[in-house]
């Protein structure tokens, strides 16, 4: 029987094909890799061949960006089949997706779109997570979103919504620390209060990424989750608060647009390793 690998409590990076040779020859601080599931759904060719080679050397996390778990409609059965096929042959250490929607009425919009937090959406998302976990035969992690706006009809906080989902479905959580900082800034919330209220016992992975700065109609700061630059210093500081609660955990650097040369990404991974080394080994109960 094949054993299921686990993600090590060290630094990982989002894998980009242009870094293949560099990672294979000297991964530096990088202990594991994350791929976007949708980029590995072809029948063969270089993407699949490279992924097979990488998976022989590194634990791999499969991160879906297109399942539309927060969608109003049913999950796309074809897409769920593709995910199952990928997870079956790759046997990844983790599978995660987003608290967001991206497909509606058969059209895929290629963005992570927000949903209101109500009893009705809670039930819908819980049903979708059940379907995913049953189909894949494994626990999934659900990631907190970056928010640019709020819904008048929301009835509960995001942390309460996520906590209830873990209770109803047994899913784990992927805590994106940059998303917390972005959402807190954009929606006038306290990022530390969000972290204090987050159900850390369910966290199986952490994300860090860079954001851009813009302004809204009133001149208030509007941060954009662009994944196109280094992680901002206040996000590293917020990470320390998170790690004080979680202890060492799998920590991913995401850099998806304007992808840099490998040494720059490797330096972010090295900084992640230093942050992890400061985390308490034993977390106070």
């Amino acid at each position: 029987m094949t054993q299921r690998p686990t993600l090590p409590a060290g630094p990982g990076v989002g894998y980009k094909p242009q870094h293949y040779s560099a990672i294979m020859s000297d991964p530096g601080s990088v202990d594991w890799l994350e791929i976007h599931a949708e980029n590995y759904m072809g029948a063969g060719g270089r993407p699949i061949a490279q992924l097979r080679h990488l998976a022989e050397r590194f634990p791999v996390s499969v991160h879906g960006v297109g399942l539309s778990i927060g969608g109003e409609g049913r999950l796309d059965a074809d897409h769920l089949d593709r995910l199952k096929h990928l997870c079956d042959w790759l046997n990844p250490a983790s599978f995660s997706e987003h608290l967001a929607w991206s497909t509606h009425d058969g059209a895929f919009l290629n963005d992570l779109l927000p949903l209101p937090y109500t009893q009705a959406t809670l039930q819908r998302v819980a049903d979708h997570i059940d379907e995913v976990q049953t189909t894949l035969g494994r626990q999934m992690l659900l990631e907190n979103p970056s928010s640019y706006l709020a819904f008048a009809e929301s009835e509960m906080s995001e942390t309460a919504f996520l906590r209830d989902l873990t209770r109803r479905t047994g899913c784990g959580l992927l805590l994106d620390v940059n998303n917390v900082f972005v959402s807190a800034t954009n929606l006038n919330m306290d990022a530390q209060a969000y972290v204090a209220d987050f159900p850390m016992e369910s966290v199986g992975e952490l994300h860090l990424g860079g954001h851009d700065e813009d302004h809204d109609d009133h001149g208030a700061p509007l941060l954009i989750d662009s994944h196109g630059r280094e992680v901002a210093d206040p996000v590293w500081a917020l990470l320390d608060d998170v790690l004080a609660r979680t202890g060492p955990a799998p920590l991913l650097i995401e850099w998806d647009t304007e992808v840099p040369e490998w040494p720059i990404l490797a330096a972010e991974a090295a900084r992640a390793r230093r942050a992890l080394s400061r985390a308490p080994r034993r977390v106070a109960a």
């Binding site: 290629n110 640019y148 706006l149 709020a150 008048a152 954009n186």
Partner: peptide
């Protein structure tokens, strides 16, 4: 029903999503 953090209309905050969709698909 889309608002900012202070309960005001979301305005150009919604444009972030609008822009993301158009840019991501055009770049693809």
């Amino acid at each position: 029903t889309l608002l900012d953090g202070l309960g005001r209309p979301a305005g150009r905050r919604f444009s972030v999503y609008r822009n993301n969709v158009a840019v991501a698909l055009t770049e693809a």
